[in-house]
Amino acid sequence: MSSLAKLIQTEARLYARDRTSLILGLTLPTVVLIALGIIPELRESSEDFGGVRFIDYFAPSLLVVSVGVIGLTNLPVIMATYRERGVLRRMRTTPVHPGKLLFAQLLVNLVAALVSALLLMAVARIAYDVPMPEHPLGFAIAFVLGMAAVFSLGMLVAAVAPTGRTATGVAMVIFMLIMFFGGVYLPRFMLPEAVATIGDYTPPGVQALLDSWSGTAPSAVQLLVMGATALVVGALSARLFKWE
């Protein structure tokens, strides 16, 4: 097996062995969905939510949790810990560049975020009959770009945080902001308009997810902002990344 394949296999194994991140990362959004769905009022269409059920409205916001938990709490903390413990430095003495380890770690986390999102959507559909995205292509693009933008922020934290503890602290602040602007703490229709507008352009761009879910093509500007964020922040973190 090539060194890259081995690295991916190893990182996937380590991810699976870390019960906390496995359970929290993969199932937290789904657990929240199930908990909300148990309340009957949230499963009935209501004038308060513009004639739709709260659960239909809120499911896309929970995707923000899926992407955020993994991209901002798992990824940067693991990378910063690897630096702190000298794992990256140790790899620099071998013929394989530690950039491959970084890539493997990124890939494993992207797959985990994807699995978490798919699990959420499947449970929403099966348990509560939440409709699936009505603009699938737009939704796929919005999801991938939004996820890339969140992960680039996670990588930026990973690039510069000297220790796992610092990474946890900084990433947690970004995570909370993203949750807030993404309408996870308070549904977006309850947020002041200015805050909601900022939320449109805050990774992962929840409005584009909501629009494409309900069948409207996502706004090109919002998608561009997500793509540009991913590129610029991603390039910046690659530039700033410290191996030791």
């Binding site: 060194s3 690295l7 190893t10 380590l14 062995r17 413990r85 794992v87 140790r90």
Partner: peptide, 19 residues
Amino acid sequence: SRLPDKLRVDEALDLYGSF
């Protein structure tokens, strides 16, 4: 220089051997 806590002895050697 340390390794990830959950990496097993044989896996570490297998991984580094592949380099």
